[in-house]
């Protein structure tokens, strides 16, 4: 098939960007979205035009490196990551708009590549359980009810892609944060630091310039891992409890 692509180009973080239009043909429906961009880049390179920069690594939907706004939707029209989106979702002759994540906390570095270092800094403020190597007790010394373990797993599948932020009109990272709070909060091992974790992570979140949550729900709709919205309720509950405890 043949497509028209409108793609955001920006030479570096300081530069002003703009949309550019490209035509690409010979797109097969078996291609992934990123393979389609590879084909375009080959064509640009051959013409002496610098290829379009975009992030990806695993191309299996698990590393969280990829992420594009496709026709205004984070990761495009299907509930999956950009790398797992395939061209059979689109039709011949279509025009597709491709932009980077837009958020004050995710500055654009070049073209479609953004800086998500703010997510790492949120984790640094408490997204862990403090246990030095070698000091762990025998794994079977603590039983964890299966439901708690399963729920912890379900939300621990967050890949840190940032689609929730890109989709949120407020640019909030509450879904990402709520997923971590819930993952560690479901487990007995995570209880000791539960209060301090949520307080510090939320403080860092706000400091990074992410917006507040007003329960719109776009984040969960865009999340490729289907992290449920109720992790944000958990986040808020934990925060209230911590504040009540005097943190």
């Amino acid at each position: 098939m043949r497509l028209t692509l409108k793609i955001w180009r920006q030479s570096d973080a300081a530069a002003a960007g703009a949309m550019h239009t490209y035509e690409v043909d010979d797109v097969s429906e078996d291609m992934s979205f990123l393979e389609m961009l590879d084909v375009l880049n080959e064509q640009l390179n051959a013409k002496g035009e610098e290829p379009i920069a975009f992030d990806s690594d695993c191309r299996e939907g698990i590393c969280g490196m990829c992420g594009l706004m496709i026709n205004g939707e984070a990761h495009g029209p299907v509930t999956t990551t950009t790398c797992q989106l395939h061209m059979r979702t689109f039709s011949d002759g279509e025009t597709i708009t491709i932009e980077p994540w837009r958020s004050d906390a995710f500055p654009v570095l070049k073209d479609l590549v953004v800086d998500r270092g703010s997510f790492d800094r949120i984790i640094q403020q408490g997204g862990f359980i403090s246990v030095n190597t070698g000091s762990a007790p025998e794994a079977h010394s603590v039983q964890v009810p299966k439901e708690a373990a399963d729920r912890a797993f379900d939300v621990a599948t967050c890949i840190g892609c940032g689609a929730c932020v890109a989709a949120c009109p407020n640019g909030s990272a509450s879904l990402f944060m709520g997923a971590k709070i819930t993952h560690l909060g479901e487990l007995p091992q995570g209880q000791a630091e539960r209060d301090i974790r949520v307080v510090n992570m939320v403080a860092q979140h706000d400091h990074e310039g992410f917006g507040g949550c007003t329960n719109i729900g776009e984040c969960a709709a865009a999340c490729p891992k289907e992290i449920p919205l109720d992790v944000i309720s958990q986040l808020n509950r934990d925060l209230r409890t911590a504040l009540r405890h005097g943190h």
């Binding site: 359980i129 025998e138 299966k146």
Partner: peptide
């Protein structure tokens, strides 16, 4: 042992 203490959510049986 180390991973469980860190909160790695390994699969569990009904007995926990």
């Amino acid at each position: 042992d180390q991973c469980v203490a860190q909160g790695v959510p390994f699969a569990r049986e009904y007995g926990g």
